[in-house]
Design a protein around this nucleic acid. Structure first.
Length: 255
DNA sequence: ATGGCGTAACCCTTACGA
């Protein structure tokens, strides 16, 4: 079973890239973030034609998350229960016995800002939700755009980013809280090339100069970590015309 | 301190992202 995550920065713009990537990657599950569309315009028919069913939690202009799957999506849940939030950032479903939790975690804008406080509250609420989901579903994967670079080696210039948004210690502590729930960073289960990132700024030739951050992650519960055979970041779509600023992350599980 | 680039919308100026 191949499971992937990709922040597409508008599914309307990126649908051709998504369809191409599904065909080449042969992913069984693809979680999307920043669809930036309402449910009523979600491209269910185009995805169905490509062999994928979908569950979407969307809104106009901002946010929006979806799970695409070759199989049936069971027990779909939207948002974080017991956390009042206008922003559509979470969707969960069970596919082939695996609980998929797809998240677009808040950006936070700047350390100390209102959006930063919202980010930390949001991350704490998600951790509470996951604790419950893990009790129900031992085979669980939390994947998406975390907007957190967990360690300095996930940052092209750690000195410049030190204590900045995406890299601050409270954000990294929130990431470690997910790990503390029993989740493992799939990417770090394997030897990886140095300076591998999942996001590059559109500006100032960020991608060509590999000025990136690794902020998109796949976290696996213990049974799935034991079944994980590979995890890679695919830079190919970032090289296309009109790319998303994020690259997809793909994990291969023997389940 | 700002803008750089890309996307969307109350669409040609502004908000937001990371």
């Amino acid at each position: 079973m191949k499971i992937a995550t990709w922040n597409v920065n508008s599914l309307k713009v990126r649908l051709p890239h998504v369809l191409d990537w599904l065909a080449t990657s042969q992913a069984d599950v693809l979680c999307l973030q920043e669809t930036k569309m309402e449910d009523k315009v979600f491209p269910y028919a185009e995805l169905e034609a490509a062999g994928y069913r979908a569950a979407h939690n969307g809104q106009k202009t901002y946010n929006g998350v979806a799970i695409l799957a070759r199989g049936v999506l069971d027990d779909v849940r939207w948002d974080i229960p017991a956390f009042a939030d206008e922003q559509k950032r979470v969707i969960a479903a069970t596919v082939n016995g695996v609980r998929i939790v797809c998240a677009y975690m808040p950006n936070g804008q700047a350390v100390g800002s209102d959006k930063y406080e919202y980010k930390l509250r949001w991350l704490a609420a998600l951790a509470g939700f996951l604790r419950e989901e893990l009790q129900r579903c031992p085979q669980l994967v939390l994947l998406g755009d975390y907007n957190i670079a967990p360690e300095d080696r996930d940052v092209h210039d750690p000195a410049a980013w030190k204590d900045q948004i995406l890299c601050s210690e409270p954000e990294r502590a929130a990431f470690r809280q997910f790990v503390g729930l029993g989740l493992a960073d799939a990417f770090r289960l394997f030897d990886q090339p140095e300076k591998t990132y999942s996001w590059w700024d559109y500006r100032q030739m960020g991608f060509r100069l590999n000025r990136g951050l690794r902020i998109d992650h796949i976290l696996l519960s213990a049974p799935l970590a034991a079944a994980c055979r590979a995890c890679v970041i695919d830079k190919a779509p970032r090289k296309l015309e009109r790319p998303s600023d994020h690259a997809p992350v793909l994990a291969t599980l023997e389940v």
